[in-house]
Structures are given as structure tokens and as C-alpha cells.
């Protein structure tokens, strides 16, 4: 017969495991002296790179910046409605703005923005909600866009920043946003393989 203390410990551990990801961000893991709601999009991106843990509200804003290049909304509710209307976020998740966001939820949002179809699990089961976030996280891990992690792992600011940069590069490569600024073997070499250095006036040198 197990001792009562062992049972109590097990119950507490189970409770912590179930509710761990939905906890508000501790104050010591926030960036002191900076209110992200007052920052512009460019400053917010630098803020993301420095903050130890990312909340749901900050992640929603980051995803809108990733998707559109800019935020354009001034409240969590407006961002949530916009993301849900595009199916980037599911209302069934019921994420609270002050809680720390988990890796799987961010992965799902990134996959949706980058239009990654995912594997068979994502198509068969994730389409109606079973393991959708986990499948998305596995997809990003397969593509090398995030490190191996768990679904319920907290998202750090620098981790989210790196993921956004990888996703941005993916979107550019896939043509999800237009950009004619490039420096590569395909676009900047002449017939002999020499690098083309343009003049500052815009003509090729």
C-alpha cells in the first residue's frame, strides 16, 4: 500500500503536468522596464529576441507580423479574431493572453502561415484537431526549423525569433511574399561565374 505522501506527491505532479503550460509568465522571466504593447513592430521583434519566455499575446502578435509583415491590431482580442478567422489559431485551444505559450501551438501557427501541408497524420487527424499541434511541431522538426523538443515545452524569446526568421526565409523561398532583393549564385553571377556587383545607382557593375 502506497503511503499517503506518495499519493499526494503523485497527484500534485500530475496536476502540474496538466496545467504547466497554462501558467502565467513569472515576473522574473519578463523583460523589466519594457512594455511590449507600446513598441512598434520592429522594436517588438528585438524585444522577442531578448525576452526569456513568450506569452500567448506576444506570440499572437509575432505570428501576425510573420504572416503580414506588420501587426496592425492593438488588442489581443482583435489579433485572436484575425488569427482564428484564418484558421491559424483554433478557438478550441482557449489560450489565455498572459499565459506562456507552448512549442506545439507556435508550430501549428507557423505551419499554417507557411502553408505547410504536413504529413499523413496532420492530414488525417490534425485536420479535425487530433494531434494537430504535435504533428505541426514534428513537421517543423523534420524541416530543421526548430530543435527537437516536447509539445508542452515553453517557448523562449530567442527561440521564437529564430523560428520566425527560418519561417520568413521559407516564405520568401516559396514565394509567399514578393521580394526582388537577393544575393545568390542564380541571380548575381554573370556567364563566366563572376560576381555581379551593382553600382550604387542601381546599374550592374
Amino acid at each position: 500500500m502506497r503511503s499517503p505522501s506518495f499519493l499526494i506527491f503523485g497527484m500534485l505532479l500530475a496536476t502540474a503536468g496538466l496545467t504547466g503550460c497554462s501558467a502565467p509568465r513569472p515576473s522574473e522571466t519578463a523583460l523589466s522596464g519594457v512594455d511590449p504593447d507600446t513598441l512598434s513592430d520592429s522594436a517588438f521583434q528585438v524585444y522577442l529576441n531578448r525576452v526569456p519566455l513568450v506569452t500567448v499575446g506576444e506570440a499572437y502578435r509575432a505570428m501576425l507580423i510573420l504572416a503580414d509583415g506588420k501587426d496592425g491590431r492593438d488588442s489581443f482580442e482583435a489579433r485572436r479574431q484575425e488569427l482564428e478567422s484564418r484558421d491559424i489559431v483554433r478557438s478550441a485551444w482557449d489560450l489565455q493572453p498572459d499565459n506562456v505559450i507552448d512549442t506545439a501551438s507556435v508550430s501549428y501557427m507557423v505551419c499554417k502561415i507557411c502553408e505547410m501541408p504536413g504529413g499523413i497524420n496532420q492530414v488525417l487527424f490534425g485536420s479535425w484537431g487530433l494531434g494537430d499541434r504535435r504533428s505541426a511541431m514534428r513537421e517543423l522538426m523534420f524541416r530543421g526549423m526548430i530543435d527537437d523538443s516536447f509539445e508542452y515545452e515553453y517557448v523562449t524569446g530567442s527561440g521564437l525569433f529564430a523560428l520566425m526568421r527560418n519561417a520568413d526565409a521559407y516564405m520568401k523561398k516559396k514565394g509567399l511574399y514578393e521580394s526582388d532583393v537577393d544575393l545568390s549564385d542564380e541571380t548575381d553571377r554573370d556567364n563566366t561565374g563572376e560576381l555581379i556587383v551593382p553600382n550604387a545607382s542601381g546599374e550592374n557593375g
Binding site: G69, D168, Y177, V181, V197, N199, G205
Partner: peptide
Amino acid sequence: LVTGQSQVKLVLEPA
């Protein structure tokens, strides 16, 4: 500071 969905191409002068 270059933001998302942005790129900047710089050329050195004098070249």
C-alpha cells in the same frame, strides 16, 4: 535593424 519580410542590399562606395 531589418524587420520581417524585408531585405536590404548594400554596395560599398568607393567600389
